[in-house]
Structure formats: structure tokens, C-alpha cells
Amino acid sequence: MNIILCVKQVPDVTEADIRIKKDGKDIEKEDLEMVINEWDNYAVEEAVRIKEKYGGKITVITLGDEESEDVLRRALAMGADEAIRIDEEGFEGSDPRGIALGLYHVIKDLPFDLILTGAQSADMGWAQVGVLLAGMLNIPYATLAVQIEIKDKKVIVKRELESNTFENVELPIPSLITIQSGINEPRYVSVLGIRRVRKLKIEEKFLDDLEIPPDKVGEKGSIIESMKLMPPPEGKGAEIIEGSIEEVCERLAQIIKEKGGL
């Protein structure tokens, strides 16, 4: 079972104070740590588990700057075998189609049985790159997988639907699956693990090598234009309680009482 994994590096915003850049098109990333996209991390784990069970090779691909090699190394440490980085230059500001095109031009020449991607990215959240890529490759796909089973050259995918319902779909090989978070428990990657793959070569691809019409990628090639980023407006029902811990608690208890919670 040869697997291609598409992953992405995103800023870690779990506890950060997010500030929006002056031009309103992105957030300030200087002070933020870059990490692997949460959904992609589950995808890596799932790929490694499939490999451990059925053998084969995992090739992990990302589209990003040099710093994003970190996520590739992390995937290598978890059990991927080869890594390819498509350099970001020329792709900046791409919409999901632009990104999918970049991935497509690398993947079309590779042999594979399965492609796994995260269901969506933590930063842009389009949840489209995976399906667009499947379309370009002309292979079937399933999204939001919460369980994958492989049986006689078929893949049975349990998909998450609305309000706690699921469906099972059967896909042939090759096909593409986008992974929902929580499908597994990703393994811990130790510093030793990362050190061990430090010296593995990461293949690099550049826009010029990929025969992609340059007017299809980057900001210019985008069909979608990002106009302005803004924090969600403060709703009416929201009250931000300020003050010392004691004061906050007291107010909180008071509200709960008022609303009949106690």
C-alpha cells in the first residue's frame, strides 16, 4: 500500500493573542510558532498505521517555505519514508485550486494507492485542497474519514456526517481520503526521532520545474480574493468578565445563579 500524504505547516494559535496585519489580509505571524496542521497530523498517523499493517511506502509532500521542512521531518520521524517540498515561491496567495495544482503536478508522476490529506487546515479552513486534487487526478475520494479499513484491494471509509451520524463508503484503489481529527491518537514524536531523520534528504520542487501555467497559481491566478480579515464581532449576549480571579469567579457565580443554573 503506497501512500502519498499531503501536509501543511500552520501557525500555532492555541493560546496566542492574534493580531491582524495592517493590510488586513493576514495575521501577524512573527511571534507565532509554526506547527503541523492538526488534521494533517492525524493523517500522518493514519498513514503510518496503514503502512505498519500492510507494508508499502509513504511519501509526504508539503507546499511551503524552507521552514516548513520541519513538518516533513516530523512526518519522517513518525514513519514516512520520503519527503518532497514544493517551494512556496510563486504560490503565495494561492487559492485552494492553486495549491492543489502544485500538488497535482508532483503527484501525477508518482505511483500510489492512496492519498491522505487532512480534512482542512487550521489557518484557512477551506477544506478543498483534498477534493480538488482528487478531481485533477480523476480518482474517487471520501472526506471527513473517522475510520479506514482495507479489505481485498478496497478501502472502507467511515465518514462523519451531521449530528452524530456516520456513513460507510467503499472506495477502490487508488483513491483519496481526507482525514477528520480524532480518527486516531497520533504518536508522540521524540527529539531523538527528529534527530534521527535530520540527515534524510528532502526532495525540492520549484514552480519552474512543474510546467504549471503561472497564471493559474499565486495571488493573480486565484479565483478567490481575500478582501479583509477581521475578528468576529462581539455579540450581544457576550460579556467579558475582568478583574482578579476572585472577582471573576464571584461575577460568574452570580450570573449562573441569575440564569437559574444553580
Binding site: 500555532d12 510558532e33 506547527v35 513518525m78 491518537e185 504518536r187 508522540y188 514524536v189 521524540s190 527529539v191 531523538l192 526521532g193
Partner: peptide, 19 residues
Amino acid sequence: EDGTRVPALMAQTLERLYK
């Protein structure tokens, strides 16, 4: 080193330590 059985909270703490 194995990584697959590290308790989730511990793994989170270590990742925070690392980053």
C-alpha cells in the same frame, strides 16, 4: 522513543516544552 503509548496530556506537555 516508541511514541505510540505516551499519555495524551504528557505528549502535549512535552510538545509545549519543545516549542
